[in-house]
Amino acid sequence: MTINPDLQGRSYPAAEVYDVGREKIREFARAVKATHPAHFDVDAARGLGHPDLVAPPTFAIIIAQRADAQLIEDPEAGIDFSRVVHADQRFTHHRPIFAGDRLVAELHVDGVRAMGGGAMITTRSEIFALKDGDGREPVSTTKSSILVRGEGQ
């Protein structure tokens, strides 16, 4: 299977809305063994000046990987998910993610580079919170590189 080199520069527009729930923040926080009360206790989060529970720093991966799935599942991309290895990851938070946020992600394919029989693919998700009316507010930019291993790699 070969990776389609024409993927570079491709974008996938914001699709479904992700509603950030309190229980999902608590579940994710427990899953990464976080114990800070701002993830669990609304009063503790408000005490720090936040409107509601604060998502852990890597919570945005849920939204980013949903956006990435559009690329990985795109038959034109030629990506075998079982041979995907996560190479690097970055989160830049323009503001924290809070319970009650309604988020959308735009996916951009920033780089495709052949490596051995496989390829390194760099994607970027621009995550926005929907505001009342038509507005949206930048929340996080996530960047990730995945290595699609070729046969025997």
Partner: peptide, 16 residues
């Protein structure tokens, strides 16, 4: 936990 507020982490990156 060190920062006292998880929202203080404004950027976080790594290579695996």
């Amino acid at each position: 936990d060190w920062a006292g507020d998880p929202a203080a982490v404004v950027d976080y990156q790594t290579r695996f």
